[in-house]
Amino acid sequence: MSTTPTTPQHPETGTARVKRGMAEQLKGGVIMDVVTPEEAKIAEDAGAVAVMALERVPADIRKDGGVARMSDPDMIDGIINAVSIPVMAKSRIGHFVEAQVLQSLGVDYIDESEVLTPADEVNHADKWAFTTPFVCGATNLGEALRRIAEGAAMIRSKGEAGTGNVVEAVRHLRQIKGEIARLRGYDNNELFAAAKELRAPYELVKEVAELGKLPVVLFSAGGVATPADAALMRQLGAEGVFVGSGIFKSGDPAKRAAAIVKATTFYDDPAVIADVSRNLGEAMVGINCDTLPESERYANRGW
């Protein structure tokens, strides 16, 4: 990999390799949105590889409206103390002070997230300035590469959070994978124009063309509500999944969470997916994305 750093002689924290490497350890796993320490325990018991702390799950943000912000530090401390798996937490786009606070609380990953209300409509945070790694959402390859250029160490396709509808997650992941596949077919002369079209740094575009994948781990998010949804995203090429409202807005969160974990590991085995999908109780109700007004589409936030 062209960006692989050389090992320093003295121990060094916050390097690109330990940031990106952390995400590599989460592959094949499920990261679950949690609001309280109690929910975090349920997620850990179900086999989550990490939990994501936020103030309200996206379905409630949609329902209640208002400004959605970083979680209360007391709640984040509570979640960190409740579980032994990695704890991630969301900051608003461009709100680098929320991110500084999350770093000082000792979270393992920061999600600069479109699900919260953006704090800056022009700039995302400079993520290189932090020791804590960042994950960011993207709807297409150019957006993913701009986030990586800003220092993101992990990407998730955005989907449409809080809808329980997987259609946008599929759209965004197919978009990113499709654009990567097209780059693979380009010769060196074409990569300069491709970089211009993608509005992304040439070096990153070239790296993606050579690797045939992003230089960081790619998960899927935004709309996964069932084990089959999770397996679908894996079969489409996601290296793992984030599940938000889909778990704690369902009838039996503990059972559904465990089922989604199993389906994510055996994503290509329909018999396992069938087995874990039995008698899960009510799934979250869900929203048809084509009836969502543009102003309520979180995926449009970030640029």
Partner: peptide, 22 residues
Amino acid sequence: RQNESFEAAVEIAGIPGGPVEG
């Protein structure tokens, strides 16, 4: 935790050629 994750050179007995990247 992750903020303490690090890289350092590590000498391993039985592996010649100098330290590995830990």
